[in-house]
Design a protein around this nucleic acid. Structure first.
Lengths: 219, 219
DNA sequence: CTGGATCCGGGAAGATACTG
DNA sequence: CAGTATCTTCCCGGATCCAG
């Protein structure tokens, strides 16, 4: 990006991450951790491959992204954020908070990946039943989704993988997923619509943290 | 801006404010409040006038900016942020925090406006002497700067204007201003270098809040 | 004088094909 | 798998011009 030429923290920050796609690449790396080139392509539908390659090079030069060559398979590469890149989490979080009101419903033609919910879920989920046993709620699928691991009052949200056996799987259209975790759609309605497979109470345990925190707790 | 076409809060947010110059226009309006077209031009050195006009129109359509026609002088207009636009303050604050380490020293040719310090100063300044009388420290000039009004433990930072009589004026090169309020340059050094006019203790009162807050207080 | 609109050149973004 | 090469399109930047 051409520099703004302004001695200002905001302008200098935008000089580094103000380019188109850059913050979305940061979102992918914050959500997924280390990932391969094709993982980034899957998580960034619409990006041109030359643009992705160019941005990764720029971000590497700016010390935001680290590139590591794997021994096997041959020519394999993993990308990850440096500490400086990971420090953008606050920026991304505020952006997501600001953008949340724009999420009322998906547009036709709009793409969706369940792991895009990972960062929002970290803000939205709570343990409403801290004395219960450890539970895992999967949002999406094992190939693309988030695992909400709730245990003793603590929440961890990780990209879904085969290392967790979910007690519950929430698989729904994008609009319903967002509505469910935003508290707009009642959990009962989601259950009736067959969007929840497994232990529905595990969903109740983690959903609606923000509003519930100010009100009563679910037993 | 072309939409990313992603049903994601970050992507949808960037659809609205990801365009070049947009967040810098928000910075100006957050810092100055209502302002005229020429004020924006002065605060955004380097922007082309057609681009500024276009962005303002886009932001008006996105409900981020409000345009009001003044009765006098003729054709005069004031721009200001809507509530939705002002809600970007959190994003801008995080960006400034992230960009702060990039501010070590100004590049030659880089432009500077003292009122760009307004948002950072809100985070940096504290009242280290809450029992003292009300004091005003001006950073920059009456035409372009910030007035730090400190009174009974409360800090207010406003764009400088003729309605305040500063007890102290800090007028220095950009690098020294940043270093002084970031705590890198000792206040004594700034005073010796004739950068501070008036009551130096008023500067001591407001500077270095973050580090001082964890340490001892200045009497 | 304020608040733009118009025109144009260069460069970044986007789409697609191809390769070690 | 991880890009490069190439082409097209469109946005940005700079200058100038214009209406109220």
């Amino acid at each position: 990006m051409k520099t703004y030429g302004q001695y200002c923290a905001l302008a200098r920050g935008l000089d580094l991450v103000g380019d188109r796609w850059t913050l979305l690449i940061v979102r992918e790396l914050l959500s997924l951790g280390e990932c391969r080139y094709v993982d980034l392509q899957r998580g960034l539908p619409g990006i041109a491959t030359n643009l992705l390659a160019g941005r990764l090079r720029d971000m590497e030069n700016a010390n935001l992204v680290r590139r590591a060559n794997l021994p096997r398979p041959a020519n394999a590469v993993v990308f990850s954020l440096t500490d400086r890149g990971a420090a953008l989490e606050g920026v991304v979080r505020e952006f997501i908070k600001w953008g949340a009101p724009l999420m009322s419903s998906p547009m036709p033609q709009e793409s969706f990946r369940a792991h895009w919910l990972l960062l929002p879920l970290r803000a939205l989920c709570r343990d409403n039943n801290p004395t219960a046993q450890r539970q895992v709620v999967r949002v999406g699928t094992v190939d693309d989704g988030c695992d909400i691991i709730v245990d003793a009052g603590l929440i961890r949200v990780a990209p879904s993988g085969s290392d967790e056996r979910p007690d519950t799987v929430v698989a729904a259209d994008p609009g319903s997923l967002v509505a469910l975790f935003a508290g707009t759609m009642p959990i009962d309605a989601a259950a009736s619509a067959q969007l929840i497979t497994g232990d529905v109470d595990a969903v109740r345990r983690v959903v609606g943290g923000i509003s519930v925190a100010a009100g009563e707790t679910t037993p």
